[in-house]
Write a protein that binds this DNA or RNA. Sequence first.
DNA 1: AGCGAACCCAAACCTTTGTTTAAGGGTAAT
DNA 2: ATTACCCTTAAACAAAGGTTTGGGTTCGCT
Lengths: 212, 212
Amino acid sequence: MNNATKIVQETSDPIVYVVDDDLGVRDALLELFMSMKMKAATFDSPSDFLERADIKRAGCIVLDVRMPGLNGLDFQNHLDTAGSKMPIIFMTGYGDIPMTVRAMKAGATDFIPKPFSDNVMLAAVENAIRVDGERRKSAAAIGAVNSLVQTLTPREREVMFEVAKGLMNKQIAFELGITEMTVKLHRMSVMRKMEVRSVADLVRKVEQIREA
Amino acid sequence: MNNATKIVQETSDPIVYVVDDDLGVRDALLELFMSMKMKAATFDSPSDFLERADIKRAGCIVLDVRMPGLNGLDFQNHLDTAGSKMPIIFMTGYGDIPMTVRAMKAGATDFIPKPFSDNVMLAAVENAIRVDGERRKSAAAIGAVNSLVQTLTPREREVMFEVAKGLMNKQIAFELGITEMTVKLHRMSVMRKMEVRSVADLVRKVEQIREA
DNA sequence: AGCGAACCCAAACCTTTGTTTAAGGGTAAT
DNA sequence: ATTACCCTTAAACAAAGGTTTGGGTTCGCT
């Protein structure tokens, strides 16, 4: 393996972002993840995290709910708005059940009371990274379809959706006020650009982006 | 509205099943739900519930986690095995965060510490009933498709899946070792019995049952 | 002004699908 | 044994889809 490849691999390995205002916690977790050969980075506040972290990267966030400025739920919303879907594991020293329920409903993958054992944290992180991987996989599939759709002209897009509805060429022609011949040509372009050979496959790709 | 219709409506209204070994809690919740014009029934143990309750009915379950015999998670599994998908709201007098996380991960819609206010419980129940309604709606759609599939002969089913894959008649004929003519006839039956007029609609119905 | 892109149409041809009608063989239940 | 259902095929036609070739307009950008 050459060096360039190695760097790419390193930067695309999942990373664990630790956000806690307690230096002791940060160091302990950093050491724990490093000892497991996992990449990790620490931040002393949510704002520090939002400034410095690459929130699009594969991995997860381990975060104390009680933080100066932003609370956990606000932080989740903030991340979501910023376009990140990184799974979040909350830690808490004083948390109660209602807070736990809110966090879990909002999509947290775990909620861990302090103090915790290494194994509990590691299991939570492994699970979160697995979840992230699955999300990324389906997001990538949708992204691939979307990039194909981007290559279509507006008219081709219209024809595609009509075809996916199950309409016949002559019906599409009527809907769009053009001739059946023109529909056929657009349709051919659609099949080629969308990289499908059957209407069935086209329908599946269209459904994939419509449900997203 | 005649009487028969009214009865049907009454028995299909959502019901709240309360399971708690504390008579005081049962009575208080029963009164609360009754006062809101909601249907409710109480049980003093999980086994009592499993014997007497109609677990296929629309509604939800409000359940104390600490019960003789079955704990909350076992109860969830038991219900699932018995074919029920009723949303569960847990109540607890002594619960901790890990228990809350386990329950939420297992699909509980809420986890409420005792004591609680009426409003908290009512909000949780309303949410659970809404969730149940949505689940039932999509389950009904899948069930409708499945009942159509039941009317297909084995051969027709095979042809349907091959068509949904996007194969041409002659390819299907080769796969099944029959002539193209026969495929066409099966295909016609499929379209008629599945109540669709286009391959696009057929693909959508097939996808609906394949993802379930 | 020229260029490219998107959009439009037509003739001709071929392939695929849809439909009708008629009919034979197998199997399982009454 | 009769009935019913499923699976199979053929001939022949109608309808829809796919492809190629060639040509046209408009619009925006350089």
